[in-house]
Amino acid sequence: MVKYTIKRIILAIVSILIVSAITFFVMNIIPGGPFNKEKATSAEAQRVLEERYNLDKPLGQQYVLYMNNLIHGDWGISLHSGRDIWGEISSRFKVSARLGGMAAVVAIIIGLILGSVAALTRNKWPDRLIVFLTTLGTAMPSFILATLLLLVFCLKLGWVPVWSSSKPNYVLPIIALSLYPMAYITRLTKTSMLDALNQDYIRTARAKGVPAWKVIFKHALRNALIPVVTYIGPMVAYILTGSMVVENIFTIGGLGSSFVTSITNRDYTMIMATTIFLAILMVVANLLTDIAYKLIDPRITFE
């Protein structure tokens, strides 16, 4: 496992380097620039800024300089606002992680419970209700759900404010963000739970008189978890990248909205830093997912 982990880490570093190179050159190819404004920046100011941020150098040299700074822990400063990039990313990520983390926990817990209930009540009304709700959850994009929640709970019912300078409310954004992964986990859990419940070891456990709750939680659910764990990596990606719209609608200053703004502004240093940061996050999430397989099912080998 150690050998496998080291191999994965090396692969991860290569992946991140490839991602960074592709991002760097693609963002420089697309038209537009970081200093474009409705009222033109003076030629002199543009020259000073390009010199300051190495944009006057050939692209290859810019990339090498950027990566060299990055390796030395310098993420640079935003071309658009002059703010320290690492400070920006870390503060925004805290917000996104808090929101995304809570959404992920909600999606996993409720998804597992609903999936199990659906499997145990197959073809009965709870199962049918859950299937109906999960189909709805899978079909409805988060931005529509977010707008709907805003209209119903903020405007019609007035239970939560749309915006507050002191008490931002995360309940609605969490619901908007977690519904799709929750629905997906429910369906995954139901399918794998049904599969597990038909296995011989379950029949054996029941025949031996093991209590029903123990059969379900210890034997069936544990085995049903593997496909769910597989989904956690992509789910983290979905929540982090999909959070942009939800963050905008609920005025939450997370990484998603900041990433999209940086692309619109051609804020090269911010685009690079956010992409690399998210790439690292994805790679780590996938690595942890693989290690979790092993912990859940010791039969799995990495060789």
Binding site: V95, R98, M102, V105, V106, I109, I110, I113, L114, S116, V117, L120, T121, P126, S165, S166, K167, P168, N169, Y170, V171, I174, A212, W213, I216
Partner: peptide, 29 residues
Amino acid sequence: LVAVLLAASMIVGLTACGSGNAANSTDNS
């Protein structure tokens, strides 16, 4: 019975999660 218990725990979980989030969010000005 297990199905009913699971459903009940789901409702409790949802409620607890909702209130927890609201409480947690107050420190984010």
